[in-house]
Amino acid sequence: MTVSTDQHKEGKKDVTFRVFRFNPQVDSKPYFDDYTIPVERGVTVLRSLNYIKEHIDGSVSFRAFCQAGICGSCGMRVNGLSQLACTTQVWDVLAKSREPGIIKVEPLRNLPLIKDLIVDMDPLVDKMKHYANWVDSTMPEAQMGKKEFLISEEEFLRYDKATDCILCASCVSECSILRANKEYVSPAVLLKSYRMNVDSRDSMHEQRLAELVKDHGVWDCTHCYRCQESCVKSIPIMDAIHGIREDAIESRGKNDTSGSKHAEAFMTDIEKKGKLVEATLPIRTNGVVWTMQNLLPMAMKMIMKRRTPPPPPLVKSVKGIKIFRTMFREMTEHVKQDHKSHKK
């Protein structure tokens, strides 16, 4: 007991790090190891892991490089939330810990596990390649270096925040769609794609967009905002996702893909009724044939269980729909204006 009061004086706390362990060579399934160490204020999760590796168990494996929050190596889940170990304060995590004195450290989700806290980043790199996450310059290679493109501050600001991305994959780990569909484009790749698409030096906006609207692309996102909330650089990722969608509707038309049709049907319902007409949403999104083939069996089941949504004529407009419609129109008008001034 005296030990702990002494430690308190020095401003130290005993902390148990419950670390996810898996070595594919010997383990058939993952398990957790507990390491308890004294931690003073100002110490990060990464420094604690380094301490454990050097003083207790050299086999604990994780990635780290810059130790300053700029290289993106040390993404991992700390008490369930994906973040950078090197910028995360132990005491801050403790203050919010559900189990007092315990910090759980696990690898990022949605990427293949290699060992302990290390996951395979290659799938992310492959997606960056697939969606052409580079500027394909309008300047021919032979002409490069002779003169600058003139870029306005305004254009620069359009992609400034997006270029903060350090590819740490925290957002990837938090994405709800990726959990179900590993082929999904991924929030970081959407962000980068957007950044390229709004760069006036780039020449392949159309091709990139054509790829983004296909299956596993931008229309699969559920707008859950988890990626944005977890972004270690506080990048407004959703702006990029919305940006790509609006761009897709604008330059490829409303009826381009089931995704755009769905978005449009959604808007129409909201404007007309103030809520969704769920029964016909699939038809308007995917067409009659697709709906019959894919959703009829489920619809039958729902009818049996009396859980079908009401048929369209019965869907009443919500209360105050008139005021709502005016507001809605004002809002869409506002957004359009905003975009125009951006494009200039």
């Binding site: 500027v135 310059s137 270096g145 600058e148 870029i151 620069f156 390229m196 760069d199």
Partner: peptide
């Protein structure tokens, strides 16, 4: 100067002056 412009031509997001140059 050539290499900085080359990077610029390839997409490096340099901050800009009032006259839109690097």
């Amino acid at each position: 100067p050539k290499i900085i412009r080359e990077l610029e031509n390839m997409g490096t997001p340099w901050s800009r002056m009032d006259d839109n140059t690097i």
